[in-house]
Write a protein that binds this DNA or RNA. Sequence first.
DNA 1: CTGTTAGCGCATTCAG
DNA 2: CTGAATGCGCTAACAG
Lengths: 333, 333
Amino acid sequence: MATIYDVSILAGVSLATVSRVMNKNTNVSEKTKKKVQDAMEQLGYRPSSIAQSLASNCSNSIGVLVSQLNGPFYGAMMTEIESALRNANKHVIIAAGHSDEDQEREAVEFLLDRGCDALILDVEALSDDYLIALSQKRTPIVLINRYISEIADRCIHLNNVLGGYLATKHVLSHGHTKLAYIAGPLLKPDARERLEGHKKALAEHDVNFDDTLFYEGNFFEPSGSDAMEYLLKQDTHFTCVICANDQMASGAISVSLEHHVMVPEQLSFIGYDNFPFPKYISPKLSTVSNPIQEMGKMAALWVLKNVYKKPDINIVNTFTPQLILRDSVKNNQ
Amino acid sequence: MATIYDVSILAGVSLATVSRVMNKNTNVSEKTKKKVQDAMEQLGYRPSSIAQSLASNCSNSIGVLVSQLNGPFYGAMMTEIESALRNANKHVIIAAGHSDEDQEREAVEFLLDRGCDALILDVEALSDDYLIALSQKRTPIVLINRYISEIADRCIHLNNVLGGYLATKHVLSHGHTKLAYIAGPLLKPDARERLEGHKKALAEHDVNFDDTLFYEGNFFEPSGSDAMEYLLKQDTHFTCVICANDQMASGAISVSLEHHVMVPEQLSFIGYDNFPFPKYISPKLSTVSNPIQEMGKMAALWVLKNVYKKPDINIVNTFTPQLILRDSVKNNQ
DNA sequence: CTGTTAGCGCATTCAG
DNA sequence: CTGAATGCGCTAACAG
């Protein structure tokens, strides 16, 4: 591999001059600049990003930590992060935390040790306190899908209370009042907020929350199936199931159909997240949008603005969910 | 940040000794080792992986290039790669090539510039020749989902001909002889191989391949829908649709149901890939397994064995697909 | 078993 | 506008 030194010799200039033409900023005469560029071309010179990092104390790498890499969710987010960052010639190092506190902390330290210039975190198990402390250290962090008031400017998140509210409001307005609710794991803020929105809508319509028609799942399909098995065993009648995400809705609908309960004729469903797949099942699932791609992109922009000092980037911290109306909610009005 | 130098002073030893205790291998007396470790602890010392990379000419980073980060496929693969590699204290840098030749080449160069010790590539647009040439350069590469005979030992791939064969064999054995086929984009090897297996099974059963019941899709859901619209307009009768992947199968089934063609009573379907989602639709999709996780893990192991010289790792280059029988194929026997 | 000495490839003063 | 010198934090011979 040719080094900056080889280039300087071939071009008949000093090391520093070569460095200068690489880093555009400083002034070099057109003539010498051309000489250097020709020499680079001729040698097929590629700068060593590692040496650059060591000398400049800037690694041009961003660590991204997510709960899991698979599933329909994080892939979409990663896509946007990767493309926004690579366009800026930064690279992204990934790690998965698996929603486990120890693993998440370990992953954060791993990324920090790697000399990342910034961290984009989508974590669920780490405490607010830990994250607040982390945010005060040298390496800047930005949080996706999480809101911590003390560091609100570093949070890119969805208004989940509103999303939960919209979903429930929608089914109420379609004449459903006997409602079952399949929640996400309540130790996750998302799950709690969506439920909070649900209850808020119920309160506005003077509908009681029925504990016997409530099930706490884990956001994965099988728990939706389990939830449905549970609900079908209850004595209480219900006409609609509100699910805290589309994956659980899918599991629940699947069980419902197995029990020959027709959807939506006998039972309505509404999901959350607007995953790509449930668009293709029958009936097509009504749901609430979760602009995870946009949020991923925004986190990348946050880093570009605040760490790499690109001005004229506008940061939006809070995103607003929208109803996606399809065929899984029957109109009882 | 404390450096190795600070540690050496606090411990009252030389720089080299500190380096030695970090890199286990060489002999250091228990006593001095303890002194050094205490000093490290006290200073909260963390080695700079960047300086290590520069000095050792080994970045401990592996570049992973996939077509896309989203979708149910690559996420599963990335999960295994990331976890296998991080357990070995290596980090993975990701890039997406979007099935475009220019973007794939650019991404390869990007990762190479980043000083990756090895590249794991799942690429579709780059030519065999390019990859063969690349494999002869300094940085080792391993290919997933692709077979190139000249560099067979660097290929981790699925026997797609067999998979295509198994799927068609299965429906033939269930009495289906009027078959429609929705292919993937034929410029991708996967798609061609699956089709080849299909034709092989047809030949064995003396069933003709009907051009009017053939549609070339692009592996995404909407093209499955388009395919189905096309097929339903044909005069030729058929009882089963064989799809080159589950996503197109989902799109096709969706359209089929919209046209009130019952599945599987009136029309059978079989997919390919065993994506997680179609397990939860009705009817549950019969398909062919694609052990993408295992293949991802194997690629990581290949790197560990061949680049980081871990012996006693066994590499399996070719994986074998299996039929996953569920409810979408009616038995006409 | 331990210390000394050179670099790894580049950015960045500081002179000129 | 350009060159010389210094150091980023660490590894790797080579001595001792």
